[in-house]
């Protein structure tokens, strides 16, 4: 299985090698999609985790027990269809082609499964149609 998760590291955990344990103890493969780590502040890490179902559950349980808050990524970025005017200015900026225009209806659609929550669309949208909650 493959899943995208957002990890929130509280201040005290930022300097500990926690993610490494996912590989070492739970045989999980991870790919860092986004990382924001500032000393003395909360750290945010967006990971794509690959591995066995059971191991994934155990790995996430380990993260929780260490004080890391986890959240599945797909819930984070959202498009407000009432605010979007279908202009397309966001489309070339998205690094994973998670935004695309339907050539028939000309509507701009957001494909959540492709999103890595980088947040560029939020800055780019002139109509505040894209939002993120990390």
């Amino acid at each position: 299985m493959k899943k995208r998760v957002v990890l929130h590291f509280p201040t005290g955990l930022v300097d500990k090698p926690i993610v490494y344990r996912l590989v070492k103890d739970f045989d999980l493969e991870f790919n860092i999609l986004k990382a924001e780590v500032n000393p003395k502040e909360e750290g945010v890490l967006v990971l794509e985790i690959k591995g066995d179902d059971q191991n994934y559950k155990k790995g996430l349980a380990y993260l929780k027990s260490s004080g890391v808050k986890t959240q599945s990524l797909s819930e984070d970025v959202a498009m407000d269809k009432n605010k979007c005017v279908d202009c397309t200015v966001c489309i070339p900026l998205c690094p994973t082609q998670a935004l695309e225009q339907n050539p028939k209806t000309l509507e701009v659609n957001f494909i959540q499964e492709k999103c890595i929550a980088c947040g560029i669309c939020i800055k780019a949208c002139p109509y505040a149609a894209m939002s993120i909650s990390l």
């Binding site: 005017v85 202009c87 397309t88 966001c90 489309i91 070339p92 209806t105 000309l106």
Partner: peptide, 11 residues
């Protein structure tokens, strides 16, 4: 180079 439009053709 990929293109984007500020003007909405749909609207």
């Amino acid at each position: 180079v990929p293109t984007g439009s500020l003007s909405s053709l749909r609207k």
